[in-house]
Design a protein around this nucleic acid. Structure first.
Lengths: 306, 306
DNA sequence: CTAGTGCGCGTACGATGTATGCGCACTAGT
DNA sequence: ACTAGTGCGCATACATCGTACGCGCACTAG
């Protein structure tokens, strides 16, 4: 799930193209040639070429082979759309969007753990492997999901005051996490892939802090996002636990109360004991919690950045 | 991996014991009886009884059955330790510790993704299923790993000043995350299970904030831990990516630079562009980053809590 | 000695992500 | 018109996972 067999072939071909060894118009080795030369299977070679195609470095020319260079403007043979449409430029974004949307829908409803390629395929009424024509793999799919999920929450006009601006970005982030509970862990799981829709957010924060030292601005941004995601993860864990066990946090405390009390007594955890002693009822409102932490962070920034 | 088949049986029996329907000294249904009555397999019944045994609600009496009540003081038949020792009280903590240690070792070296029951078993030179006698399942194992990993970092004396106290706890946490890169995501993944070794930490924070409003103290604690884990996740992602791809963050920026620049240009992300424009070199030191954010947070608390 | 117990672990099941290979529609060249 | 060769699409199959299952064993009470 984290390996890369066909990517090596793609990389090699890409190198050859960039070095000018393969010039535009020339034919890149056919899938069968790749099969022979690299000792791999047909589909692996196909996938390698597919990668380069998505990068628009090459394009297939039926009956000829795969040639170097971007695809020509599509000739629309008119009509004959095979149920699922293909965009004018030959890319397959429309179907990809469908797959990604379905992924998001499943993850929203049942969490990232319930997200499987088979599940998506079944839900869309297509075969499992058909998905791989649109998304490249599960990891890539998740990155796409993250990107479009964040894209649902555009920034809007950013306030002039740096403090308000930062708060606005943080709240947008929070809103996204709140709607898509899986988002927080998905962002951390997917390697530091480029998430284009995230760039305006980082830009807004950096812009708001333009007056300050650069390293401080960068540190601030990372800290801020780390904090927001941290709280979001708390929220996700709570939601998942409740879904899995059917027990809310309050009920859990009630049920585990004895064990907890015993441990508190055993470890003479006085402060903890005090907290539970008087019937103090902490309402587990994560929105308030988030705003509290955000306020603290911003106050701290005011001090630090003068 | 997240279901509970044998636990239902355990719960039912526990209920019967607590209700007094099964009194101390009486025999709980034998494994074979459970197999018959619940329509499950032998091992499932065995596991159910094992659960109650670990809770010390029942104990096995060879040749008789499993009887209600805590186990008697062990008779040591002396010698005859079958290679792997068993503790005097009959528990199996020693071997469990071995399993947990091995899990930690693997996760430390290759990340949580590389952690599998088979792998642990192979590394220990035992059969896979033998592990289940000591740890109950992978989820439980991970919780154990988290607990002992945190346990490696005891608190020591907590400073008197609330600010210093909180900082001390946060730094201990950070040290733990730093040594065990998998810890941050493991804590979030494992359900809100009780992690005993964590209690002193929360207690220390709550104790330091005793003077303040209770809900504020609790919010502060959660926010603090969320922040620390958030930064730790950034660190983990970076480490994982580097291990998987063999590319450091700096190299990545260099390599992806073009793509990034294109996106910046396309989205007119001016602030971002400025940052990359002059050859500003952000040294990606996560320790400094962590301290920066911690400082901000503490400054903010000073303001908020007066 | 026997009948019954719990224990330990080898085997096997049902998931997963995805590499593999086959049949097909298609086109360029003859 | 025909053939040889292409890329495409998907059904099949594999490796890996967590762990439920069931068998054989050592043991003890009667």
């Amino acid at each position: 799930m984290t390996e890369a067999p066909y990517l090596a072939i793609a990389a090699e071909l890409r190198q050859r193209i960039e070095d000018g060894e393969l010039r535009p118009g020339e034919r890149v080795p056919s899938t069968r040639a790749l099969v022979r030369d690299f000792g791999v299977a047909m589909a692996t070679a196909t996938k390698a070429l597919q990668v380069l195609q998505q990068e628009r470095l090459v394009h297939p020319s039926p009956g000829v082979g795969t040639v170097v260079g971007p695809p020509p403007r599509a000739r629309r043979p008119d009509g004959s759309a095979p149920e699922r449409r293909v965009l004018p430029d030959g890319s397959l974004d429309l179907d990809r969007a469908e797959v990604v949307e379905m992924g998001i829908a499943i993850a929203d409803a049942e969490g990232l753990a319930a997200l499987s390629m088979r599940r998506i395929a079944a839900e869309l009424g297509v075969s499992t492997m058909a998905l791989y024509r649109y998304v490249g793999g599960k990891d890539a799919l998740v990155v796409q999901m993250v990107d479009t999920a964040i894209g649902e929450f555009p920034l809007g006009p950013v306030p002039a005051q740096w403090r308000d601006a930062i708060a606005a970005v943080a709240r947008v982030h929070w809103a996204a996490y709140r709607k898509h509970l899986w988002l927080a862990s998905a962002i951390s799981l997917s390697r530091p892939q480029l998430v284009p829709q995230l760039l305006p957010h980082t830009d807004a924060v950096l812009g708001a802090l333009r007056g300050f030292e650069k390293s401080a601005a960068l540190s601030t941004m990372i800290s801020l996002f780390a904090y927001v995601r941290g709280i979001a993860l708390v929220m996700e864990a709570e939601a998942q636990a409740e879904q899995d066990t059917g027990v809310t946090a309050d009920e859990w405390v009630l049920r585990q109360g004895d064990q907890l009390a015993a441990m508190i007594a055993a470890g003479n955890l006085t402060a903890f004991g005090d907290l539970l002693a008087d019937d103090f009822d902490f309402d587990y409102d994560l929105d308030k919690l988030f705003e509290f932490g955000l306020g603290v962070f911003l106050d701290g920034l005011s001090v630090r950045l003068r």
